[in-house]
């Protein structure tokens, strides 16, 4: 791939993402503030309920909840938008050839940006609670963030072409997201469940990433690297598998949109 082509790909992703952004907050009074407001309101409610009712003795429950919620909203938004991306860009796809992965990635850019805005809030909280991590911990955290984006894209590459043909997928995914939310250690610490259930929870890819992020950011410890390596070892081939799947299903896909 030559330089110009690569340049054009990035420009396309950015242009489509920018348009999405402008459209999303078009005519809304609070505009981009909603990026903070939505997860933050959920956070306030959950914090009020759980920190007072169940986890009174848990140190830093509030900040743990916030880490979990921000990572989760990144994942759930990116996957949902990524899955819908091909259908929502039908007007373009039907008229011109654009690689599908460009469309899918560009639609997830918004979620990534929203995540980085939310991260600012998280950092303010980390300061306020006096648990701000060091550079090393932050870099490890960055790896987790990249991995979350990785699984979101992997899911989107599989789901976007499938969704064109089976329109129930968005309903199914909505339900599944609800299940996964409770199967991830967001509102509760993983230690709150019995060990054999913990093993089960680790089948959910978000469990490992959220739990490890909490350890790194708040406890300033380093979670088990062997787990992380296994995780990466599984994700990379699956990621390329999803790219292959996307390429395979491109044939005759546009006609069904």
């Amino acid at each position: 791939m030559n330089y110009k082509k690569r340049r054009h790909y990035w420009d396309t992703i950015w242009m489509l993402a920018k348009t999405d952004l402008k459209m999303r907050y078009q005519g809304s009074w609070l505009g981009a503030v909603w990026v903070f407001l939505k997860p933050f309101c959920l956070f306030l409610v959950l914090n009020f309920v759980f920190s007072n009712l169940f986890f009174k003795d848990n140190p830093h429950y509030t900040i743990r909840l916030l880490v979990g919620l921000i990572l989760w909203s990144f994942f759930s938004e990116a996957t949902t938008v990524g899955m819908n991306s091909l259908l929502s860009k039908a007007n373009i796809l039907k008229k011109i050839y654009i690689p599908l992965w460009l469309i899918i990635i560009s639609s997830t850019i918004h979620s990534a940006l929203a995540f980085f805005f939310n991260l600012v809030i998280l950092f303010i909280f980390l300061f306020a609670y006096n648990v701000f991590p060091g550079i090393l911990q932050l870099s490890v955290f960055l790896i987790y963030v990249i991995l979350i984006y990785g699984i979101s894209l992997t899911y989107s590459f599989f789901a976007a072409p499938l969704y064109v043909r089976f329109r129930d997928l968005n309903q199914i995914w909505e339900v599944l997201l609800g299940v996964l939310f409770y199967a991830s250690p967001i509102i509760y610490p993983i230690t709150a469940v019995p060990p054999h259930v913990q093993t089960l929870l680790y089948l959910n890819p978000m469990t490992l990433l959220i739990e490890h992020s909490k350890v790194v950011l708040i406890d300033h410890g380093f979670a088990r690297f062997d787990h992380l390596l296994i995780f990466i070892g599984i994700l990379i081939p699956v990621f390329f598998g999803s790219l292959w799947f996307l390429k395979k299903s491109t044939k005759n896909l546009i006609e069904s949109i």
Partner: peptide, 11 residues
């Protein structure tokens, strides 16, 4: 810019 990008131009 939007249409130009889609038609294959860089910024």
């Amino acid at each position: 810019f939007l249409n130009g990008t889609i038609l294959g131009l860089t910024f």
